[in-house]
């Protein structure tokens, strides 16, 4: 199929970017979105032009590296997939596809479609862990009995790959879904309860410091999340935060 692409090109973080039009022929429905961009880049390289920079790594939907706002939606129009899992059969011959980087003040553009998502790393570093003494007396995690429902729910929260689609989709560029998933994956387990108060206070403080917007419960994040992280996580984080604030 033949596609008309409008792609955000930006030389570096300090240069102003703009949309550039490309026409690409010979795209197959079985290709992934990233393979389509690979073909475009091969064309550009053969013509001696600068290829389009975009993030990718595992290309099987588990690493959270690929991003892209495709026709106004993070990871494109399909549900529960990352951009690398998005097939070109979701588009039609002659379609115009608008491709932009994830937009948020806390996700500054590095080049073209690549954004700096290290703000997520800093939120994790603020409390997204449990402290374990590893000096030879580590206890086996499975030695503590955990109710199956809690274990399953914590695992659901832990499936967040930190791609940033929630921020990109949210009209407020809020990072509540990501942060709440990372709070929730520990909050539901006995190992995580030990530092639960400090964790939620510190992670929310870091999230606010990074300049993400406020959640207004539109639910866009949940719909666009490639891993189906639910709004229940945000409600849980709200409860955890309010309880932690009362405890002081």
């Amino acid at each position: 199929m033949k596609l008309f692409l409008k792609i955000w090109r930006q030389k570096d973080a300090s240069t102003k970017g703009q949309m550039v039009d490309y026409t690409l022929d010979g795209v197959e429905g079985d290709m992934s979105f990233l393979e389509m961009l690979d073909i475009l880049n091969e064309d550009l390289i053969n013509k001696g032009e600068e290829p389009v920079e975009f993030d990718h790594d595992c290309r099987e939907g588990i690493c959270g590296t690929c991003s892209l706002q495709i026709n106004g939606e993070p990871h494109g129009p399909d549900r529960l997939v990352t951009t690398c899992q998005l097939h070109m059969r979701k588009f039609n011959d002659g379609d115009t596809i608008v491709i932009e980087p994830f937009r948020a003040k806390a996700f500054p553009v590095i080049k073209d479609l690549i954004v700096d998502r290290s703000s997520f790393d800093r939120i994790q570093q603020a409390g997204g862990y449990i402290s374990v003494n590893t000096s030879g007396n580590t206890v086996d995690a499975n030695a503590i009995p955990i109710e199956k429902h809690a274990a399953d729910s914590a695992m659901d929260s832990a499936t967040c790959i930190g791609c940033g689609a929630c921020v990109a989709a949210c009209k407020n560029a809020s990072a509540m879904l990501f942060t709440s998933a990372k709070v929730s994956q520990f909050a539901q387990l006995p190992q995580g309860r030990v530092e639960a108060t400090d964790r939620v206070m510190n992670m929310v403080r870091q999230m606010d410091l990074e300049g993400f917007g406020n959640c207004t419960n539109t639910g866009a994040c949940e719909v666009e999340c490639p891993k189906g992280i639910s709004l229940e996580n945000i409600a849980r984080m709200n409860r955890e935060y309010l309880a932690a604030s009362v405890k002081g």
Partner: peptide
């Protein structure tokens, strides 16, 4: 605050 958190607006 929410408007400013987006920074650069999306084209689409």
């Amino acid at each position: 605050q929410n408007k400013s958190a987006r920074g650069v607006s999306y084209v689409k």
